[in-house]
Design a protein around this nucleic acid. Structure first.
Length: 718
DNA sequence: AGCACGCCGACT
DNA sequence: GTCGGCGTGCTC
């Protein structure tokens, strides 16, 4: 009797073998049910072993009549498991997330006119039969025709209507590549045509689409998608976006362009919609899918094009559960699928740039269109020479600029990437700092709610009147600025100005966000004080001055991408100022005016920054010039985590081109009672770092109470 | 991931 | 004397 290896969506080390029961034909990729201990689980046939004995194995229970997982997808699962150093079943679990998509799914019964004329025709019956020319639900039919359900039942009985069964999950409308074409610029057309050629030829072809804001990247995406639709009658297209919440506008543009809404995949669409998308994708019937990073794991029947928009965006890196970078995984998947992939960004990541420079990606550049705002004039304010007053944060130079701008009836944006009033509350008598009980991170004071808040866990408490350590009354002082404190300072300086705070605290709901933005757009706000949420994509026509309160946040620490992130954030924020007809200005307060990222901002020379940043990282062997990985340990007690760290440390072995740092407690040393320790591993590009991490992980055993996770190419160093 | 087995504390 | 806590190990 033949046997099969079945991969189960569980963290098991390998696929398990089962015997194929008489009369069941199984192929690689088939989705089946198999017994595991006392339970039955859904799994996927990973290998067929026709010559195996199999008599000592349990039998497969059943086979689902759904589309099998394609070979490129199975290869991708094996690759991702090996690369991310997780059991393959954990990757499969990502793919089988929508279990209800398997099997037959819900069915609804519809009535349809058969053409048989009833014995006693009348007006009511005629109306019903006319409406039932196309299939329609019985209740709906009676309601629409304005008759009781008895009329419908009668017609069904007489044979004038018949019942048909249809899956509730209706197919997605087919997109029409010829609908609503818009004229493109020559450069846009050329870029789209280059991508179109690659699609026509087929095979893995990666592109980096480097286009500044306003250069019309989306039009190029749309034409590339149109090319993909035309190049292959069954090819599917995946569009990955970083923040789906911000992208309903993009979904609408796809619908306009192709006359059909694309399939969507993200956590907000709900179970039923997910089931429908999963099923339609697996049968190859959903042609265009727009989704967040996890859409990468959808079971496409034939994927011909992947677009990763805003490829530099950090939210593509998932940091809980399975740790993966959706952009990097998308490139890998495109390789296995033999698909074209377009990584698009106004500020491409250094990773992608280096890949492009090395010839691994083909670069397409979209320059700014005529009349579209360029970066405003940017100047630094050296806080050493122009310090604010004591307990104040806005330099006199910035205050003067604000006065001028407000006098012109124009708007000001002050940027500070810190929520709340003050980032630290400490006792001036004993030095005690108010810390979060879970994370030991500082509690941030929020004046409006008069509470101390942990920004990591959401823990909050009333601000105590006396110091909890020494009991000194009035000893607690607020140190450092948050947006609320800047707002207070602005209110003192400009009592007449209409001022608003834009942070996740004030834009807590979509409506609140919408209102805030439209007040700013209509010029009903004079001074907007915002955290990084202002950096994303809003255009305010009356905004001509951007002030950055503290450019130095995030310029230190062990994060190799800190400089790049700061540069990107500041250039995005600065880019909010000014339009073509009204030039804008950005003033950046800093203690480090010589910093290369800041200098590059001032000179407007993006390439100079890239060059300096590349050299710096190359010298350090940091990504993308070297490889990096982290090994995290978590336990409920200090002894537990330190003991595990010792075990891991003792098991370490020397390897050519590999350096290991640690164990050390990360900046957030405790999360909800879990003590954390971390090793950082740096390796030459030539090293198979995944293999090293897997070998290391296999060489020590820790108690089950300790959690060990491996992060390949970590992005977060908290 | 579930689920059972197993060895130590407070209950009818 | 049991019921049940969750630490450890196994599932083809």
């Amino acid at each position: 009797m033949p046997a099969v290896s079945i991969l189960l969506p569980l963290p098991l080390p390998e696929a398990f073998d089962y015997v194929v029961p008489q009369g069941m034909a199984l192929n690689v990729g088939d989705i089946v049910e198999a017994p595991l201990g006392k339970q039955t689980r859904v799994g996927v046939v990973w290998a067929v072993k026709p010559n195996s004995d199999g008599s000592n194995l349990k039998p497969v229970i059943s086979k689902f009549e759904t589309a099998p997982l394609s070979k490129p997808l199975r290869d991708f699962v094996d690759f991702a498991a090996r690369y991310l150093v997780v059991p393959p079943g954990q990757i499969l679990a990502m793919i089988l997330r929508s279990r209800e998509a398997l099997g037959d799914g819900p069915i609804e019964r519809l009535a349809l006119a058969t053409g048989i004329v009833p014995d006693k025709p009348n007006a009511a019956r005629d109306r019903v039969l006319a409406l039932a020319a196309t299939p329609i639900a019985r209740a709906q039919l009676a309601k629409d025709a304005g008759v009781g359900s008895a009329v419908v039942s009668g017609l069904l009985k007489s044979g004038a209507l018949r019942e048909i069964e249809q899956p509730v999950d209706t197919p997605f409308q087919l997109p029409d590549p010829e609908r609503l074409k818009r004229p493109l610029s020559d450069i846009q057309s050329a870029a789209a045509a280059t991508i179109g050629d690659a699609l026509q030829k087929g095979g893995y072809t990666p592109f980096l689409l480097d286009g500044v804001t306003g250069s019309g990247k989306t039009e190029v995406y749309l034409e590339a998608v149109a090319s993909a639709l035309k190049a292959s009658p069954d090819g599917q297209i995946l569009v990955l976006l970083p923040e789906i919440a911000l992208s309903q506008a993009i979904v609408a543009r796809f619908e306009d362009r192709f006359g059909a809404p694309p399939a969507q995949w993200h956590y907000e669409i709900g179970q039923a919609a997910k089931r429908r998308t999963w099923r339609e994708v697996s049968h190859g019937r959903a042609r265009i899918v727009i989704g967040a990073r996890s859409a990468l794991f959808l079971p496409f029947a034939k994927l011909s094009l992947i677009i990763v928009d805003e490829e530099h965006d950090g939210s593509f890196k998932q940091d809980d559960g399975l740790r993966y970078h959706a952009r990097d995984m998308a490139v890998a998947r495109a390789k296995f699928e033999g698909a074209t992939i377009v990584l698009g960004s106004a500020t491409p990541s250094l990773e992608s740039r280096i890949n492009a420079d090395a010839g691994r990606y083909q670069t397409l550049i979209l320059p700014a269109r005529y009349g579209v705002a360029l970066l405003p004039k940017i100047d630094l304010i050296d806080l050493k020479y122009h310090p604010p007053e004591r307990e104040k944060w806005i330099s006199p130079v910035l205050v003067d600029a604000m006065v001028d701008t407000l006098a012109q009836k124009e708007q000001v944006l002050l940027f500070l990437n810190r929520r709340g009033f003050a980032p630290v509350v400490l006792c001036r008598k004993c030095g005690h700092r108010m810390k979060s009980p879970d994370t030991q991170s500082w509690l941030v004071e929020h004046k409006y709610s008069n509470r101390l808040v942990c920004h990591l866990t959401g823990f909050s408490m009333r601000k105590p009147d006396i110091c909890p350590t020494c009991g000194a009354p009035d000893g607690l002082v607020s140190v450092g600025p948050g947006v609320e404190r800047i707002a207070a300072e602005v209110a003192e300086l400009f009592p007449e100005a209409r001022t608003e705070i834009f942070s996740s605290d004030t834009a807590h709901s979509p409506t609140a966000l919408r209102n805030l933005i439209s007040r700013m757009e209509r010029g009903e706000t004079d001074i907007l004080i915002g955290t990084q949420i202002v950096a994303k994509g809003h255009n305010f026509p009356g905004l001509t001055l951007v002030g950055v309160i503290d450019a130095d946040l995030g310029l230190s620490g062990g994060d190799p991408r800190a400089g790049e992130r700061t540069y990107q954030m500041l250039s995005q924020v600065a880019g909010r100022a000014g339009r073509a007809e009204r030039p804008g200005r950005a003033l950046i307060q800093t203690h480090y005016p010589d910093n290369e990222a800041l200098q590059a901002l001032v000179s407007g020379d993006r390439d100079a920054f890239i060059e300096a940043e590349s050299q710096g990282r190359a010298a350090m062997g940091a990504p993308p010039f070297g490889r990096m990985a982290a090994l995290h340990l978590m336990a409920q007690t200090d002894d537990g985590v330190d003991g595990a760290a010792k075990l891991a440390s003792d098991a370490l072995f020397a390897a050519q081109g590999v350096e290991v740092w640690g164990p050390a407690p990360p900046p957030i040393a405790m999360v909800r009672g879990w003590r954390r320790r971390r090793f950082i591993v740096q390796a030459d590009r030539s090293v198979d770092l995944s293999a090293f991490m897997a070998a290391w992980r296999a060489s020590f055993r820790v108690p089950a109470s300790v959690r060990v996770t491996i992060d390949i190419e970590p992005y977060s160093f908290l």
